[in-house]
């Protein structure tokens, strides 16, 4: 048997075909198998998805129940922990403060509700409220009692604080005439009688009005300042820095010129709000300001009108 004949014989095998009966049997088998495979695929998805859906539903239900747990529920502690942990999710400090303020209001209301019904859990709720307050106070910028010197002063229609000090400054003129600072060079130095240098006498203040008392930390409450900034033409000014501390841009106005600023202040305190626009070098180009008295947790500040600086 030579190679040519072998190749010829092998080539003839290429015309072999599967018999029709066998083909029909194979097709029937395949069709049955196809249905099984599709069914298995569907049921495998169901097998995989069912526990996932059940677990997700259970987690959602547990989460929903926990996050709505009242103060006298055993889940209230878990709710507080979740809510406190969620505060860390806020990248924007102002958004975080707003969130914490909301939590504080809720917890305050819950503590009040529990107290009103005489629940034993009210003390715990009150502790949680106080802890929230402490957290807020540590985060909130304190609204200064007076506008600091050198800061962009509030412009009209700003009501400037009426607590401008009437007391003399520490550098007030002394009432007496100071003696010569040095002794004459011709004088014989007498160690006991003539000191070489004499301090000028201290000025004696005529009146000593008591300065505004320093706010006690515990008096501070978290408040939200709401207001609007407009330009000289009265149009809303956007992207304007707003702060209770001049130079420290705490928040910026929205496209409608609106701002919302969370700070810590005392009830009855006058807070000053500064607004300014700085150029790329940091130089203030427009400024304005307004003041308002704190009467509650939300303070509506008069509209601030910007003017060239």
């Amino acid at each position: 048997m030579n190679d040519e004949r072998l190749v010829e014989m092998l080539g003839s095998l290429s015309h072999e075909r599967m018999g029709r009966a066998a083909d029909a049997r194979a097709r029937q088998r395949l069709e049955g198998e196809w249905a099984d495979v599709q069914e298995r695929r569907r049921s495998s998805w169901r097998r995989v998805l069912a526990p996932v859906v059940i677990a997700a539903g259970f987690i959602a239900l547990a989460g929903f129940t926990t996050l709505r747990a009242p103060g006298d529920s055993p889940l209230y502690g878990a709710r507080i922990a979740i809510e406190d942990a969620a505060a860390n999710a806020f990248a924007d400090p102002q958004a975080r403060l707003q969130y914490l303020l909301g939590l504080y209001d809720q917890r305050q209301a819950e503590a009040a509700r529990l107290e009103s019904i005489g629940s034993a859990a009210s003390s715990g709720a009150r502790r949680i409220e106080q802890r929230t307050l402490a957290t807020l106070q540590s985060l909130l910028p304190n609204a200064p009692e007076e506008p600091p010197a050198g800061s962009p002063a509030p412009s009209a229609p700003v009501s400037l604080p009426s607590v401008a000090p009437e007391s003399p400054s520490p550098t007030a003129q002394p009432s007496g005439t100071p003696p010569p600072a040095t002794s004459p060079t011709t004088a014989r130095p007498t160690p006991l009688q003539t000191p070489t240098r004499t301090e000028p006498p201290r000025a004696t203040p005529v009146t000593t009005p008591k300065p505004t008392p320093t706010p006690i930390k515990s008096d501070l409450v978290p408040i939200v300042l709401n207001g609007t900034v407009v330009d000289a033409a009265g149009a809303p000014a956007r992207e304007v820095c707003v702060s209770v501390v001049a130079g420290d841009c705490q928040t910026r106005t929205s496209a409608a010129g609106v701002y919302r600023l969370a700070v810590s202040a005392r009830l009855g305190q006058t807070v000053y709000v500064y607004a300014w626009i700085a150029d790329a070098t940091g130089k203030i180009t427009f400024k304005g300001g307004a003041s308002a008295v704190v009467r509650g947790s939300t303070v509506q500040v008069p509209t601030i009108s910007l003017h060239p600086y």
Partner: peptide
């Protein structure tokens, strides 16, 4: 089928094997 025929040398076996191959492929 031809591959199976060359492997088994039997038409019946090759036919059965061909059906098996496609079922396994499926």
């Amino acid at each position: 089928y031809r591959f199976c025929l060359a492997r088994t040398g039997s038409v019946h076996d090759a036919e059965d094997l061909t059906a098996d191959v496609f079922v396994k492929a499926l």
